[in-house]
């Protein structure tokens, strides 16, 4: 049986890359999320500022909702922290020995920063801000 016709099924999801594999996957998802947002936001800002269009206002209502903000802040904070880790480890390859520790440190920073962001967003949503 050739390698490509082999049935893998759910076992395929069990690639054991560990924490850094999840970072890699989340980095892609958050990156795509941000570029789609930025591109749409540039277009909506143009519609709103230079044409006074209602479509621009509609876009802004979505962008200002706490659900969308929770998503985009997750993307930004995760992508920045993970990107910084990648830059540091790529610049000083000797540190790759500690890449697991670096990943844990990254989450140690992410959890309180994103937690506070969520707290502020939910508080504002509940108070109708």
């Amino acid at each position: 049986m050739s390698a490509t016709s082999r049935s893998v099924g759910l076992q395929g999801l069990r690639y054991r890359g560990g924490t850094t594999m999840w970072s890699w996957a989340l980095h892609r998802v958050s990156g795509v999320g941000m570029i789609v947002f930025v591109a749409m936001h540039v277009v909506s800002a143009f519609l709103l500022q230079n044409l006074g269009s209602d479509v621009g206002k509609l876009y802004n209502t979505v962008f200002e909702s706490w659900i969308f903000q929770s998503f985009i802040y997750f993307c930004v904070i995760f992508h920045v922290l993970n990107g910084t880790r990648v830059i540091i480890l790529d610049t000083w390859p000797k540190l790759l020995e500690y890449q697991r520790e670096a990943t844990w440190m990254q989450w140690l920073i992410f959890v309180p920063v994103y937690g506070l962001t969520l707290l502020v967003l939910v508080q504002r949503a509940l108070s109708g801000g």
Binding site: R28, G31, V32, M34, I35, V38, A39
Partner: peptide
Amino acid sequence: FGVTHGFNGLRVV
């Protein structure tokens, strides 16, 4: 830097 970084990332993905 942002838009170029983003679209290149999209290309890689």
